[in-house]
Amino acid sequence: MTWGMHEAAATTERPVSSTRQQGCGAAGGADATSAFSRAPMLSVCDLTIRFGGIVALDKVSFAIGAGQILGLIGPNGAGKTTLFNCVSRLYTPTSGDILFNGASLLGQPAHRIAQLGVNRTFQNLALFRSMSVLDNVRVGAHARSRGDFFTDALRLGRARAEQRKIDTRAAALLADLGLESVAYRCVADLPTGTQKRVELARALAGEPKLLLLDEPAGGLNHHDVEELGRTITGIRDRHGVTVLLVEHHMNLVMSVSDTVVALDFGRKIAEGTPEEVRNDAEVIRAYLGGAAT
């Protein structure tokens, strides 16, 4: 059952709180942070992003404590994926800030985010389609390994050692997610459910502290969704990975999340325990008015 994950990743870290972080918490409303016993790992502060006339995110603030699972829900077009894209630095927000362990992510280029410990999956699968399952997972370990053209071209000892490290981790992840039998298959030939698991394995190969999952249950059948729920809590419980989960599958979100945040038209309309958010009048209205699931 070992994930081959570094021990450091398995212990949940208590980030040193900074003045900036507290400032952000205040801006997000006192209730946003007081709900957590731990200092937040990720704080989203007044995050706003516009595309032309569309305000895709409108002063959204919330925070996730280390070791938590936060469910992010909202009707289609609410801005959930956009928020993920801001955190992974694929988009640059118009205003606001994103703090990871107290430091702003906005000054970082996109390729540094994984190194800092934030990894993600994509709503519409973004696998490396010409590669095998194994190679996809190996690429996931890129941020946690080193190498260059020269050492790789000559297969110097260092390159081989890194390769072994990557392979050990990839093999452990494939075993853990039940992907061993398809390890050498081209990902493009596999069913959607399997591809989703490959994306999960690829994201975990980066040894994240924070994992962003964008609709991991999309296209899965009932049985697979239950299994996915166990996998997600397993990732958190056994290795202390903090999870930000975007999902339309309400049963899944409500059963695994510690906290749920609801977005609608780019605004945060509710935040609280799954029970509170499920019964929130505005959430119910948003779902009845918009595309319900």
Binding site: F122, L127, R138, V139, D152, L154
Partner: peptide, 28 residues
């Protein structure tokens, strides 16, 4: 050797899906 290494996989990843490649920490 390059093609079958970490470097080669990064190169192919960029070709296959540059956005995902960046999210995996590859400096495109």
């Amino acid at each position: 050797n390059i093609v079958n290494s970490r470097t080669g996989r990064a190169l192919i990843a960029i070709r296959d899906n540059p956005i995902a490649a960046r999210a995996m920490g590859i400096d495109i």
